[in-house]
């Protein structure tokens, strides 16, 4: 994930800003981390370089 996405994306539930926490970075791209809603506190994972901003009720029930 490119960090410049932060000025476009938001929480899918309340549309508030997201706070980025980077766990792993590769050549400038964020490979893994967490995006946390600054309003409702919902945490959205960045996995394999792609932010998962599905609402919680549409996420995998178990990790494949």
């Amino acid at each position: 994930m490119n960090e410049d996405l932060l000025d476009i994306i938001c929480c899918p539930l309340d549309k508030s800003e997201l706070e980025l926490d980077v766990r792993d970075r590769d050549d400038g791209e964020i490979v893994s981390g967490t995006l946390t809603c600054t309003e409702c506190g919902e945490a959205y994972p960045i996995e394999d370089g792609i932010p998962n901003l599905l609402p919680p009720d549409m996420r995998e029930e178990t990790t494949a």
Binding site: M1, L5, D7, I8, I9, P12, G49, N52, L54, M58
Partner: peptide
């Protein structure tokens, strides 16, 4: 990601009925 080699592409997983994108961003 495997098919498209475009430096401007930004992949996002999301729901079309509850978009994780800001107002007036597109």
């Amino acid at each position: 990601r495997d098919r498209i080699d475009d430096p401007g592409m930004r992949l996002v997983q999301g729901d079309a009925a509850r978009l994780p994108l800001r107002a007036d961003s597109v």
